[in-house]
């Protein structure tokens, strides 16, 4: 199982990760297209991103969300009808959407933001337990 992990104590809130994510997947500079969102609480930086918990899989109204062989929760764009139910149902608030995109998007633990982080505050954890 692959999960993106964030080290709060190291993060400086530069938000390079957001930019890298939005650019890689949507060729945008707008952070609203990023699957990781950094928020500042009194200079402590919190990262909102998918924990791969899979709560969205069973609630999906078009059976479009699945867990891949590495344990990453993914959206099948061909099956998704863009209802955004999963966005409202995500306990982590880490399923995102944009009005000009037909389907929602989420972190798939791809490593792009990890490489973009100058502080090393992000890493991909791989657990041996395959779900």
């Amino acid at each position: 199982m692959k999960i993106l992990a964030h080290k709060q104590e190291i993060c400086t809130g530069c938000r390079n990760c957001e930019e890298a994510c939005a650019d890689f997947y949507f060729k945008r500079t707008d952070r609203n297209y990023s699957s990781i969102r950094i928020t500042n609480n009194d200079n402590t930086f919190h990262a909102t991103k998918c924990t791969q918990c899979g709560e969205c899989i069973n609630m999906c109204t078009s059976n479009a969300i699945y867990r891949d062989r590495l344990g990453v929760v993914r959206i099948d764009k061909n099956k998704c009808v863009g209802c955004l139910g999963c966005v409202g149902f995500c306990s982590e608030l880490s399923m995102f959407y944009a009005d000009d995109l037909p389907v929602p998007f989420k972190c798939v633990a791809c490593n792009v933001c990890v490489k973009a982080c100058p502080e090393g505050a992000l890493e991909i954890l791989v657990s041996k337990v395959k779900e």
Binding site: C83, L84, G85, V87, G88, F89, S91, Y97, D99
Partner: peptide, 17 residues
């Protein structure tokens, strides 16, 4: 106006959740 529809839809789904 897709934006309004998306916004209300997500708000409602969250309410349900």
């Amino acid at each position: 106006d897709i934006s309004t529809i998306n916004k209300i839809g997500v708000k409602y789904a969250k309410e349900m959740h």
